[in-house]
Simulated scan of single mutants.
Amino acid sequence: MKSSTAAIPLAAALLTLGACGLGSEEPDTEAPADTATADEAAEEAADETADGPDGEAEVEPAGERGSRANPLALGESIEGSDWVVIINEVQFGADEQVAAENQFNEPPPEGHSFVLIDVSATYTGTDSEMPMLGTDIAWVTSSGETLGSSDAFAVAPDAFDTTRELYEGGSETGNLVIAVPEDDEGLIRVRLGMFEREEAFVAPR
């Protein structure tokens, strides 16, 4: 009888320890990671980067500054190895001014009108040079044709002297006259140097 009575407290103790062990394990209540939500967030971040913070599509750069796709503005300097040129101002519809400058000036061709381009050129080389050797300024039409002042057969008022010899620091300012198609949305092209030429385009308006 003693052995059976002693076994009862031992069994109770084992049951108590077992219950404590089971109760100490906390249930796993953490929800599994929502992979779909994470993927959606990544896609939204990628879309925001592509479209910009306001949700609007970002505009790709039009091209290098000074290119035909992204021309310079009036008054900006164009620098080469020996010359610095600035297109100061452009006057459209200058037929009367050109006609009054010289009685031998021919009128522009039909469908064209004269444009006066006010140019400043400064020589920065170490020797001396004339603008006609180191600079070239032309009009490039919206359809891609190139027109120069030599095509106009006219003398411009306050003309830019392309034959004036300049030493380092010397400059020349004046007008070039070019006959361009009426209402043409062309650009002014500036080239500097005789061999390794720098080139830039300027919006005339």
Results as ranks from 00 to 15, higher is better:
residue 145 E to Y: 15
residue 78 I to C: 14
residue 65 R to C: 10
residue 32 P to R: 03
residue 184 D to I: 03
residue 122 T to D: 04
residue 44 E to Q: 13
residue 81 S to I: 13
residue 122 T to H: 02
residue 59 V to I: 10
residue 104 F to I: 13
residue 74 L to V: 01
residue 200 A to D: 00
residue 186 G to R: 03
residue 35 T to M: 11
residue 192 L to S: 01
residue 150 S to E: 14
residue 101 E to F: 13
residue 29 T to N: 15
residue 95 D to E: 12
residue 20 C to E: 08
residue 200 A to W: 04
residue 107 P to Q: 07
residue 2 K to Y: 11
residue 88 N to W: 09
residue 126 T to W: 15
residue 100 A to V: 05
residue 3 S to L: 14
residue 112 H to E: 15
residue 35 T to P: 01
residue 100 A to I: 06
residue 52 G to I: 02
residue 194 M to A: 07
residue 43 E to K: 10
residue 144 G to N: 00
residue 76 E to N: 06
residue 94 A to M: 13
residue 102 N to D: 11
residue 65 R to P: 01
residue 41 A to T: 09
residue 125 G to M: 10
residue 26 E to R: 04
residue 40 E to C: 05
residue 6 A to M: 14
residue 84 V to E: 15
residue 106 E to I: 08
residue 108 P to N: 11
residue 22 L to S: 01
residue 73 A to E: 08
residue 96 E to P: 02
residue 11 A to V: 14
residue 204 P to C: 05
residue 175 N to V: 09
residue 131 P to N: 05
residue 140 V to Q: 06
residue 40 E to N: 06
residue 135 T to C: 13
residue 37 T to S: 11
residue 189 R to T: 03
residue 155 V to W: 15
residue 195 F to K: 06
residue 30 E to I: 03
residue 101 E to M: 12
residue 159 A to T: 07
residue 171 S to M: 11
residue 61 P to D: 07
residue 126 T to S: 15
residue 129 E to T: 00
residue 186 G to K: 05
residue 130 M to A: 15
residue 137 I to P: 06
residue 155 V to K: 10
residue 33 A to E: 09
residue 25 E to R: 09
residue 99 A to Y: 04
residue 97 Q to V: 12
residue 73 A to V: 04
residue 24 S to R: 09
residue 46 A to H: 07
residue 139 W to V: 09
residue 168 E to F: 13
residue 190 V to H: 02
residue 169 G to Y: 13
residue 114 F to R: 01
residue 70 N to H: 09
residue 79 E to C: 07
residue 154 A to Q: 01
residue 138 A to R: 11
residue 56 E to G: 03
residue 147 L to M: 10
residue 123 Y to W: 06
residue 71 P to S: 05
residue 173 T to H: 07
residue 50 A to I: 08
residue 177 V to D: 05
residue 88 N to Q: 12
residue 143 S to G: 03
residue 65 R to F: 14
residue 94 A to W: 12
residue 197 R to M: 09
residue 53 P to L: 13
